[in-house]
Design a binder for these strands. Structure first.
Length: 271
DNA sequence: AAAATCCTCAACCGCAATGTT
DNA sequence: AAACATTGCGGTTGAGGATTT
């Protein structure tokens, strides 16, 4: 026989996440790491399915997310990578630490596609789309557009070479820095480092029961088979005693944006 | 000021790949 | 080897904010 289904979806909450749900999920992951998404909502006290928790964490709560608009260079890279890889958003996203596939996909569909269309460039081969005969009145506009097409095409071509060389470099780095998501000790060590960099160690330690000196992590040995050993008391302890404090403090103390300057220090989050 | 329309992006869905029993 | 669970991916949707009429 196989395993139990991921969720029965009965009585589960859907739609936008509340701040409290976010806090519950973040605190649970800080406490326990990520081992099995199926059990996360149950143990974190969330009426969500594991899939929803995973998505929320990956696309919104991960502290290494780079928020804000895409730079022109990033856009050019996306265009170039899309020309090579097609709609393989996760592959494309792997070239942009801190960006999610969802974010890139959204950006492509809402902005880049439109931008290329405006410039009269084909989104697949990046060549100018054949246009019907124009009237003399539009000559100036056409010239301007052609110039822009050439500029964009050239810029993208230039980026293409650097992207190719980065590809092999990135692969190497990824192998070197690879951290298994289920290695919660490692994950939490990195989190601590991150927090200490931000001088937030105090509240993280209080709220997550992570010892900054002993590296003891309450449930680092958690696995599917020994979930019964996970101290539910700890998460409820957190919910009862610390969450309120966190809810009160978090938004004023910590904006996730504050993590952005630490991009280079948190490459360990890369998939 | 109100209504209509457009735009963005978080979240959901279903499927495929992979892992486990 | 087969059956099933879990995870990850890409397509799509829709709520809500922004802009235009």
């Amino acid at each position: 026989m196989g395993r139990q289904p991921c969720c029965d979806k009965v009585g589960l909450k859907r739609g936008p996440w509340t701040i409290e749900e976010d806090h519950k999920l973040v605190s649970f992951i800080l406490n326990n790491g990520i081992h099995c998404w199926r059990v996360v909502p149950k143990l974190a006290g969330l009426l969500r399915c594991g899939k929803s928790c995973r998505l929320r964490w990956i696309n919104y709560l991960r502290p290494d997310l780079k928020r804000g608009g895409f730079t022109e260079m990033e856009e050019d890279q996306i265009i170039q990578l899309h020309a090579r890889l097609g709609n393989r958003w996760s592959k494309i996203a792997s070239h942009f630490p801190g960006r999610t596939d969802n974010e890139i996909k959204n950006h492509w569909n809402t902005r880049i596609k439109k931008k290329l269309k405006c410039l009269g460039l084909d989104v697949v081969n990046l060549k100018p789309i054949e246009q019907k005969q124009q009237t003399d009145d539009n000559d100036d506009d056409d010239k301007e557009k052609t110039n822009q097409q050439v500029n964009v095409s050239e810029r993208i071509e230039e980026n293409a070479e650097s992207i190719k060389s980065l590809d092999s470099e990135t692969e190497l780095k990824r192998e070197e820095n690879k951290v298994a998501w289920d290695d919660s000790d490692e994950l939490l060590n990195k989190f601590e480092m991150l927090c200490s960099n931000l001088e937030l160690g105090t509240w993280i330690s209080q709220d997550t029961n992570i010892s900054t000196t002993t590296n003891s992590v309450s449930s680092s040995s958690m696995s599917l088979d020994d979930t019964s050993h996970i101290s539910i008391d700890e998460s409820s302890y957190f919910q009862q005693n610390s969450l309120h404090q966190w809810v009160d403090n978090m938004d004023s103390i910590l904006s996730w944006d504050a993590f952005n300057p630490l991009d280079q220090d948190i490459s360990f989050f890369e998939k």
